[in-house]
Amino acid sequence: MMIKGLHHNAYRCRNSEETRKFYEDFLGLPLAHALSINETKTGRKTEVLHTFYEMNDGSFLAFFEAPDREFEFKDQHDFDLHIALEVEMDDLHAMFEKGKKLGMETRGISDHHTIHSIYFRDPNGYVIELTAKVPEKTPDQATAAAEAHKMLRDWNDAHAVS
């Protein structure tokens, strides 16, 4: 089996329209598909709306609004969970200004060596990172993979349990 790519990631949302306003109106990801689910495959009655926001590569960010299912929404720490989306550097700066102008929680611009990033919170508490590559600091894939494997080995050696 060969994985072809990401089709979608799915997350819970509090309110589909508030989620749409953030992802479509603010970020510019078009609402491309919606699916109403009234019964599970096991025959349980439910009431769920599944919405899909399309990215330029054809993959989707998707959300489930399930009012009859309990879910603990909480503000996520960046290290716990975040959704990172790639943009061009000019767009990164424009979105930073747009977020600030709208009075949104807007953090950054963070220099992560090979990328620069900014951060927002969506209406569900998820951290959304917009990231732009710094081409002159971005190694080729083989070099990056070799460096990643070395860093992981060093990490494991330093944190090995005896």
Rank of each mutant, 00 (worst) to 15 (best):
T114L: 14
L35C: 04
K100H: 09
G28D: 07
A10I: 04
F22I: 03
V87R: 05
L35D: 10
A32R: 02
T106E: 00
A144L: 14
H113L: 15
N38W: 14
D57G: 06
A146K: 10
H77M: 13
K100Q: 08
L6Q: 07
I118R: 00
F120R: 06
E47A: 09
G99M: 00
H33N: 05
E105G: 01
L35G: 00
E18Q: 10
R14P: 03
V127Q: 04
T46K: 01
F52Y: 07
V134Y: 08
A34P: 01
F63T: 07
M55C: 11
S16I: 14
L81K: 01
H77V: 14
A94I: 04
A84R: 00
N38D: 12
L152P: 11
T46R: 05
M151E: 12
A144P: 07
N124A: 04
S162T: 11
V127K: 07
D90S: 11
H50Q: 04
E129F: 13
T106F: 13
T106A: 09
E24A: 08
L102I: 03
K150D: 11
H82W: 12
M55R: 01
S110E: 14
A62C: 03
D75R: 13
D122E: 10
P30M: 02
E129R: 09
Y53A: 01
R14C: 03
L31A: 04
R20A: 05
I109N: 02
P30Y: 11
H113V: 15
G58F: 09
E65I: 09
V134K: 06
A148Q: 11
L61R: 06
L92R: 05
L61E: 10
A160T: 14
R14A: 09
N15T: 06
N9M: 13
K4I: 05
E88D: 13
F79L: 13
I37K: 00
R153N: 14
D90E: 14
L31P: 09
T143Q: 06
L102H: 14
L81I: 02
D80L: 05
D91A: 11
A158M: 10
E105A: 12
L29K: 04
